[in-house]
């Protein structure tokens, strides 16, 4: 029974994605929609991502410093640990999970409301491919914009660690900067951004599927919104493992 539901849902999701990536009716209208989505889904998330990144960077630095009390371990190791934690895991994965909550619920509830108030039917009656018009700009916008958000998050996370290390006196600025530069592998940035793009696709497409296929009323829109966040989060965690195995393993 459960397996049946999984197959049915996956099949419906794939069919919806095939409709989403059909050739747009009018590129100009889609480009405008893309710009609107970048504004709604991307720019709107800068503040929350920035605040979380600064404080998590600070906390990672303090916790690492507290756990590396051995005087034989140089202080710049704290900065290395902070850098690796932020670049490899926190920024791409944790920020994507936060975005799954913020952006995913927004997309699912918007599309769900459009479905129950017949706005999607109105598009279909006009001859517009509603799946493509409503979903494609969201997916493309987040795949384009999320890497920028993640780069901002990486920078601010590392900056947060620098500030915390300096304020608490746990890491001297010169040691922190040395640690950040020491043994830096640029491939980790590529790995991190690759994950981000995949997560962006998962968040928007899963949330769009949940919202677009709502049947019923306000209660079902709420359920779809929750389902979108849970499903996108699980998908991110699973994809994170697979991508790490694939790209770093």
């Amino acid at each position: 029974m459960l397996l049946n539901t999984v197959f049915k849902t996956t099949g419906a999701y794939v069919l919806l994605m095939l409709r989403v990536f059909r050739r747009p009716e009018k590129l100009k209208v889609y480009t405008k929609a893309l710009m609107r989505e970048i504004d709604l889904l991307g720019l709107d998330s800068v503040a929350i991502v920035s605040i979380i990144s600064i404080f998590v960077g600070a906390v990672v630095t303090i916790q690492t410093a507290l756990n590396l009390e051995d005087p034989l371990i140089p202080d710049y190791y704290i900065a290395i640990a902070t850098r690796e934690s932020i670049i490899l895991e926190f920024s791409p994965t944790m920020v994507s999970l936060i975005l799954a909550g913020k952006v995913g619920s927004n997309i699912a509830s918007t599309l769900g409301t459009m479905r129950v108030s017949e706005q999607i039917d109105a598009l279909e009656v006009m001859g517009v491919n509603s799946a493509s018009y409503l979903i494609m700009p969201k997916i493309v916008a987040s795949m384009l914009y999320n890497p920028f958000l993640i780069v901002i998050s990486m920078f601010l996370g590392i900056l947060g660690g620098y500030i915390a290390g300096n304020l608490t006196g746990m890491v001297a600025p010169v040691d922190y900067v040395l640690g950040i530069q020491l043994g830096f592998k640029s491939y980790y940035i590529a790995y991190s951004l690759t994950k981000t793009v995949v997560f962006a696709f998962l968040i928007t497409s899963i949330a769009s599927y949940a919202g677009y296929t709502v049947q019923g009323g306000a209660v079902e829109v709420g359920v779809a919104s929750t389902r979108a966040v849970v499903s996108a989060s699980v998908a991110i965690i699973v994809a994170n493992y697979l991508l790490t195995q694939l790209l770093l393993g």
Partner: peptide, 19 residues
């Protein structure tokens, strides 16, 4: 079919205007 659809107009029960 899309082209015939463009010859159709529809007034929905609750208007279905784009919010």
């Amino acid at each position: 079919r899309q082209s015939v659809r463009q010859e159709m107009g529809m007034v929905f029960q609750y208007s279905a205007l784009f919010d």
